[in-house]
Design a protein around this nucleic acid. Structure first.
Length: 606
RNA sequence: GGGACCGUAGUUCAACUGGUUAGAGCACCGCCCUGUCACGGCGGAAGUUGCGGGUUCGAAUCCCGUCGGUCCCGCCA
């Protein structure tokens, strides 16, 4: 249907007869001559329609609306010198139309303009309802290309490294740990249900037992939890697993993979190896396990300084088993007013949202003088002030904000304030937004975390992560006892404050696997029922193995400098997990339910 | 489950403190225009102000409910 693409035409094509297909990007009708910007996925080219070429041709051209699909024949010629458009790559040439064929016309009002020239911010609701039009726009078209390039680069790299892609079931069994499952009723096995996989975790481990040694998959994963700008009910992981690899070997391989992706998609050289931070260090210094290291304002421990303080908020926090930590904001006295850090202020509310009861502050003045509320000032000694200034490296003009209370709340509060202030004071400059890539491995996660609601230990990643061997020792009889305090051979890849991947070495010893399940509250009967096939497999010559999974949607979001993963997915769902275009989910016929042996208990709220 | 913001023409926005015919750009329709490139000029059509109820002499505006969208907490790794 076409001999060349619109965006490919250059002066080298002058004189050639070409046949082009595409959409009318816009039309400039001068009465005597008509210019059509014809667009396909490669770009736009100016088509010139001259009245001398015939009445019919000219009438057809006059009737064209934006987004009409046409095929044109014509000769490429250079533009007059004064009419060269240096803003577009094809701006030195144009095609003189000989024939225009309308392949499809636009008969309804377009909900929004596709042309880059009218790229105004359309309500997302409208974009999602007419997603096919939105995809035709340059922004989404480019994002999908970028996504393709990302995945293609990963495939090429992994192929070179001896990995093969293996598909795993989408219909599988529900597992008790983790997120809520999407369920699929079985027609054949009445009363029983499949679940859609939250990840191919167990299958990829079993592929290792199956001797595949090096597996990957671009895997769709499903989680029936509430949505966020970076969370969709179905999302894509680059899922990787390998046998006979130490943790450092796995990290090294994945650093190369990531460096490759950034190089191929953005032309950016990412320095490897990536820095590593232990989970504990990350929590101490940033209050989170996914720190944004593009700016400072690290958390500073001051519990020992204020343990005996007459300021009760501080001393009680510590005697209650918690801590007092602070962050120093460079020249914060000038940029942040008291109104903002006192009740009702925006920074104070951030602290509140994290669960903090209050937000103590100290303003640093000249000569180690400070300003603060009376209750704190009256209880501060000069040596305490001196030590505080040394630890925080605070200078005159700086503002120090405190979190005091249970350690998890303090960390959460200061993490949140740190991020809020960084954003608010533009500590990440506009150019950094697309150019600064702070990769970081967070390693040595604890195996378990106490869930106070259920009064039991929970696996932090999942129950198949291997503990560090030095933490549990060789003696099997002591594993059960040592496991709760062990760290895992687990790692997360963090980029600019977002987790883009995570993985671990897996347990390949059936006894240890049973022990771990026991620690998180599985009886041996339950363990057998739910994970018997895994434990059996581990008993039949399972190789040491481990792996990682990357969130492709998030990775592409960051590469594309977008704020939502919806802009990296062709057909995403809304926050209510609806597809506005296909109108899914939708009702089904009763007959279908009967076949599936299920009945709805849903009552329409009226 | 909870909190915040939003919903006006196909679309992006406007409409003062509640005030009389709800405006403008783009798109659409018609006419004019031979070198534009976000072409230009003249004219036109286009609205159940998401939906339902209430307050009021009077509601796009205030109140309640509801539907839809976004962000966040819970939830989720």
């Amino acid at each position: 249907m076409r001999s060349i693409c619109c965006g490919e035409l250059r002066t080298s094509a002058i004189g050639a007869n070409v046949q082009l297909c595409g959409w009318v990007d816009r039309l400039r009708d001068h009465g005597g001559v008509i210019f059509i910007d014809l667009r396909d996925r490669t770009g736009t080219i100016q088509i010139t329609v001259d009245p001398d070429k015939g009445k019919d041709l000219f009438n057809t051209a006059e009737s064209l609306r934006n987004e009409t699909v046409i095929q044109i024949n014509g000769k490429v010629r250079s533009r007059p010198d004064e009419a060269i458009n240096s803003k577009i790559p094809t701006g030195e040439v144009e095609v003189l139309a000989e024939r225009i064929k309308i392949l499809n016309s636009v008969t309804t009002n377009l909900p929004f303009s596709v042309s880059i020239h009218d790229e105004e911010s359309i309500k997302e609701e409208i974009r999602l309802r007419y997603r096919y039009l939105d995809l035709r726009r340059e922004r989404m078209n480019n994002n999908l290309k970028l996504r393709h390039d990302t995945v293609k680069t990963a495939r090429n790299f992994l192929e070179e490294e001896g990995f093969i892609e293996v598909e795993t079931p989408v219909l599988t069994r529900s597992t008790p740990e983790g997120a809520r499952d999407y369920l699929v009723p079985s027609r054949v096995c009445g009363g029983e249900y499949f679940a859609l996989p939250q990840s191919p975790q167990l299958f990829k481990q079993l592929l290792m037992v199956g001797g595949i040694e090096r597996y990957y998959q671009v895997a769709r994963c499903f989680r029936d939890e509430d949505l966020r700008s970076d969370r969709q009910p179905e999302f894509t992981q680059l899922d990787i697993e390998m046998s006979f690899m130490e943790q450092n070997e796995i990290l090294e391989l994945n650093e190369k993979l990531i460096a490759n992706i950034w190089k191929k998609t953005k032309g950016i050289d990412i320095p490897i190896p990536f820095p590593k931070l232990t989970w504990k260090e990350s929590m101490d210094r940033y209050g989170t396990d996914r720190p944004d290291t593009r700016y400072g304002m690290e958390l500073v421990e001051t519990s020992d300084l204020f343990a005996q303080s007459g300021f009760k908020v501080f001393s009680k926090a510590i005697s209650g088993g918690g801590c007092v930590k602070c962050i120093a904001i460079d020249q914060g006295n000038a940029s942040i007013s008291n109104v903002r850090i006192k009740p009702g202020g925006d920074i104070f509310s951030e602290a509140q949202k994290a669960g903090a009861g209050g937000l103590a502050f100290i303003r640093v003045r000249e000569n180690e003088e400070v300003d603060t509320i009376g209750a704190i000032k009256d209880n501060l000694t000069t040596s305490q002030i001196h030590e505080l200034l040394v630890r925080t490296s605070a200078k005159p003009g700086d503002l120090i904000l405190f979190g005091a209370g249970p350690t998890d709340i303090v960390n959460k509060t200061l993490d949140r304030i740190r991020q809020f202030i960084a954003k608010n004071l533009n500590l990440i400059s506009e150019s950094d937004l697309s150019n600064k890539w702070n990769f970081l491995w967070v390693v040595d996660f604890p195996m378990f975390e106490f869930n106070s609601d259920e009064n039991r230990l929970e696996a932090i990643h999942h129950p198949f992560c291997a503990p560090k061997t030095e933490d549990i020792g060789e003696a099997k009889s002591l594993w059960q006892e040592k496991l709760p305090n062990a760290n895992a051979q687990a790692y997360d890849l963090v980029l600019n404050g977002l987790e883009i991947g995570g993985g671990s070495l897996r347990i390949h010893n059936p006894e240890l696997q049973k022990n771990v399940l026991e620690v998180i509250g599985f009886s041996s009967k339950e363990a057998e029922e739910q994970f018997g096939f895994l434990i059996d497999a581990l008993s039949m010559g399972a190789p040491p193995h481990g792996g990682i999974a990357f969130g492709i949607d998030r990775m592409v979001m960051l590469l594309a400098n977008e704020d939502s993963i919806r802009d990296t997915i062709a057909f995403p769902k809304t926050q209510q997990a609806r597809c506005l275009m296909a109108q899914a989910p939708a009702n089904v016929q009763n007959k279908q339910l009967e076949e599936l042996h299920i009945a709805s208990t849903w009552v329409d709220p009226e």
